[in-house]
Amino acid sequence: MRDESHLLPNGRVLRYTFRERLMHWVAGFSYLYLLLTGLAFWSPWLYWLSVVCGGPTTSRELHPWVGVVFTLSVLWMYLIWAPQMHSTARDREWWRSLRYYIRNEDDKVPDEDRFNAGQKALFWGFLICGILLFLSGLVLWVPHWIPRSLAFLRLIAVIVHPVAALLTIALFMVHVYMGTAVERGAFSSIVRGDVSRKWAARFHRAWYEQIARGPAPRK
């Protein structure tokens, strides 16, 4: 799938198409439900979260179905975004200058493409963990269907599921923090789709320069 971002007639830049935004929020809201119900089953201290998610039994019934929705949205994301997520030489340089990025010394960070190396890591991390969560989740969905001779599947699943979930939680926390608190304007870009030219040049300069000199918008 090619990058459909372009300059808008009002002088702003279309960063995320409607389809990309819809996809992101199907994944986002399903992940949020999975996170809250999953944390409720993870720790007795957080069991109350299942109450606000429809009650403990409802949470247990819905968690796997919402998991299917999340898995499908991650696969959809793979189909649309994977070609833009390959690691480049610039990304490796970006990782080497990570400490400058963390300290907001962005002038020492290489120009970023449409997705910077951190966003690419987020994408691949969620894809791999999503697959692991789906496979182990299938076993945990219907443990009583697993015959005694395959009991090791259940024993593997009870470790793989929380480990993969914890990894996504790490990714998720950084993602939400970056997208709302740190990079001002990023949150509205995934809601309304557009960013200012300055925003584009500030955070994704290589991408911005490419579309600034690119062909005129189709419409």
Binding site: G11, D106, D107
Partner: peptide
């Protein structure tokens, strides 16, 4: 936060002149 000086709301079509702001 990583600040972007948003003056292009008014001057929408102006190309950003400077590079990245620290």
């Amino acid at each position: 936060p990583k600040i972007v000086e948003e003056d292009d709301v008014k001057e929408g079509n102006e190309e950003p002149r400077e590079g990245k702001q620290p």
